[in-house]
Design a protein around this nucleic acid. Sequence first.
DNA 1: CAGCATCCATTACGATACTG
DNA 2: CAGTATCGTAATGGATGCTG
Lengths: 179, 179
Amino acid sequence: MKPGHSNVPATQAFAGGTPNGGTPANHVTANHVTADCARVAPVLSRIGDKWTVLVVTFLGRGPMRFNALRREIGGISQRMLTLTLRSLERDGLVTRTVYPTVPPQVEYALTELGRSLLTPVLAIRDWARQNALQIEAAQARFDALAAAAKPACGGGPPHVGSRPSAAGVEEVAHLQSER
Amino acid sequence: MKPGHSNVPATQAFAGGTPNGGTPANHVTANHVTADCARVAPVLSRIGDKWTVLVVTFLGRGPMRFNALRREIGGISQRMLTLTLRSLERDGLVTRTVYPTVPPQVEYALTELGRSLLTPVLAIRDWARQNALQIEAAQARFDALAAAAKPACGGGPPHVGSRPSAAGVEEVAHLQSER
DNA sequence: CAGCATCCATTACGATACTG
DNA sequence: CAGTATCGTAATGGATGCTG
């Protein structure tokens, strides 16, 4: 069996209308929403896989050959690059052009659709860039609390996990100003 | 061991400068790029997991209690909702407020950071919505070609996969107009 | 150079059962 | 209600070796 992508058994809901504006108390009739959500989910799985965004981002800078891409990206295995490109090709996001030269030469490029994807994808990437530090800080804080609340017995071996909860009375409405 | 999230061994590159504009032949010195890319990758893994986007989207409509979220989302298992919310809390994207009522009541809400994430996330979701049909069409086309080029021997059992390649001479520069 | 096939480790996720 | 614990399965993804 091929370990290829394209899966997603079937997710349903996907949040319907406008997140705020629009009708305020509109808590979704939960029926027609389900429909196109099922089509949205697979796309997100695609975006979310380990390499798609990378590849799309790089191809956004112009067409590229297989190994060039491989080198630029850095940590990707040949297998995953192949798989990712296949999926993208299948989805109509990239084109694969083979030049029948003596050493075979294959060039990948974004399609129109692929370029349109580039916009929101870069938006996410930039968000990630800008907020990475905040997130790391939040994680550190969280982990610190978790570790503090679970000294278990002796010291504090690197056995991370668990949570500060159930350590006594839950702190209520922490009033954290969301920094 | 907890099956919790937060993994990502270490990805490196992440496409540096402006995707097009800027310096044209700038093919990345591949060094300082590697730095913040390593911080961006985990964030994307988070976005890409099966439920994060869903949860964030729903919470974007206002604070919600555990089971309310569970019901609204639909296909999520209790376990995954817990895990997802944990991760989001750890990342500082949602707050978890426990009200010590007799039946315990926990409310989840997006933080400022979480709301800022909402914007690019909705952008992706909308892109997915708008282009889902094109993608499906592209897939159908691709799969049709793949199936056509691989009748194997007898008929065409449901052994999907593979590709039309290596079936003869590769079609060169297909000139597909990217529809 | 480009890429498929196979093996193998890790992980994500769902179902189920139990707790405060 | 809101979890946690445990189990089993399937998907993800890396390493390696072979082909055209």
